[in-house]
Design a protein around this nucleic acid. Sequence first.
DNA 1: CGGTATCCGACTGGATACTG
DNA 2: CAGTATCCAGTCGGATACCG
Lengths: 127, 127
Amino acid sequence: MTKGFDADCPATREILNRVGDKWSVLVIVILADGAKRFNDLKRSIGGISQRMLTLTLRGLEQDGLVKRTVYPTVPPRVDYELTPLGRTLLEPVTELAMWAQRHRPNVQNARAAFERAAKPPVPRRGT
Amino acid sequence: MTKGFDADCPATREILNRVGDKWSVLVIVILADGAKRFNDLKRSIGGISQRMLTLTLRGLEQDGLVKRTVYPTVPPRVDYELTPLGRTLLEPVTELAMWAQRHRPNVQNARAAFERAAKPPVPRRGT
DNA sequence: CGGTATCCGACTGGATACTG
DNA sequence: CAGTATCCAGTCGGATACCG
C-alpha cells in the first residue's frame, strides 16, 4: 500500500515548502472566492504584515498559482486571483483542512495526554 | 463555493504547522510501510540529523500521529509506528504529494517564466 | 494604493559531543 | 542503540520608514 508515490521526491518537498509556510494556504483559500485587491486581501487575513503578504503573493505568483494584474490607474490598483493551476491546488488543500477539523479533538486529546505523561503524573491527594 | 470550511481556523493552522515542517511528512510516509526503529528511520530518510529526527518524532507522538514503543532490552530498542489517527492523515497528505507530482511541470514552467519576466527580457540580437 | 528597503529578534535546523 | 545537550549559522517574519 501507498506504493506508487514518493513523498520525498523533490516535487513534493517543493510544494510542501510553499504550502507549509505561514500564509500561503490562507491566501489561496481567500482567493478561492474570486479576485481581490492587495489591501482587501490584507484586511481579510488580519494578522499579516504588508511585507509578508507581498512575499507570499510573489511566491504564489512565481509558482503559477496566482495571477497578478496591474491596472495603471491613478491610485494604482492590483488584483490577485487564482490561476486554473491554483484552483486545482485548492482541492488537496481543502482535504487537509477538513482532516484538521475532523480530527482536531483527537490531536488536542493526544497533546493533553502527552503533557500529562511528561510531568510526574499528579501527586495523589496527600503530597 | 468552498464555503463550509475555514482554512484559517486554528485546527488547520495547527496541522499545517506540523505537516509543513521539514521532515514530518517524510517520516509519516516512511512509517506507512510499517513500524521502524530509530536508526532505520534515520537511514531511510538520509539527510536528517539525529536531533531533528528526535524532535520530529516527538512532535508526531505528541499529536497522536505516531506511537513510540520502548523495548527495555540491553541495547535499547525503540519502535515507531503510525497510530490509526496517523494513518488517516496519510490520505490527504498523499493527495497533496500526488498533486505535486502531477503539476510539477507547470510549476517549474511558471518559475522559469517568472524569472524571465524579472530580468530585462533578453536583449534582442544587437545589444 | 501598493508596494520596497532596512533593521532586528525569534525560531529552525545542522554539527558535534556526551550519556544510559 | 537511542537518545540529550550545546552551540551556532541561516532563515523567517514583524515593525517601521520611505517611494511611485
